[in-house]
Computed example of a mutant assay.
Amino acid sequence: MEYIKRFRDIALDCYDHYEETMLVEMCMGNMIMEYRDVIENFEISQFTQLLQKARKATQLIRPSFDKPNE
C-alpha cells in the first residue's frame, strides 16, 4: 500500500505528460509478484482503484506471508 502511495505521489509530480492509466500500469509492473498476480486481471486505470484492489489483495495475501518457512 505504501509503495502505491509513494509511486503515485512521485509519478504524478514527475510524469505530468503521461496518462494516469500508463502510470498505474508502470506501478503494477513493479509490484511484489503476489500482489500483481491478484490484481493484474482487473481493469484498473486510476490509483484510487489500484489502492482499493490492493487493500482487498492484502487480506488474501497476508496469510501466505505469515506462514513460517519450512
Rank of each mutant, 00 (worst) to 15 (best):
L23W: 12
N69K: 09
D37P: 01
G29D: 07
I32P: 02
R6D: 14
A57N: 03
L23H: 02
T58L: 06
Q49T: 04
E25K: 08
D9C: 13
L51H: 07
Y15C: 15
F7P: 10
F65Q: 07
L51F: 11
I4C: 10
Y15Q: 10
K67T: 15
M1T: 10
V38D: 01
N30G: 12
F65E: 07
M31P: 09
Q52G: 14
R55F: 03
C14L: 10
Y15P: 02
Q49E: 15
V38F: 05
P68H: 00
Q46L: 00
Y35V: 02
I10M: 03
E43N: 15
L50N: 01
Q52A: 10
M33K: 15
M31W: 06
M1C: 08
T48N: 14
T48Q: 09
T48I: 13
I44C: 00
Y3L: 12
M33H: 15
K53H: 13
T48P: 00
C14I: 11
Q52C: 14
G29W: 03
E34K: 11
K5M: 13
Y15G: 11
L50F: 14
I32M: 13
L60I: 11
I61W: 00
E40V: 06
E19M: 02
D9N: 15
Y3G: 12
A54P: 01
I10V: 08
I4D: 07
E70W: 10
I61F: 07
P63W: 11
I4T: 03
E34C: 01
M22Y: 09
R36M: 01
I39C: 05
F42Y: 03
H17C: 15
K67W: 04
Q46I: 04
L60V: 05
H17L: 11
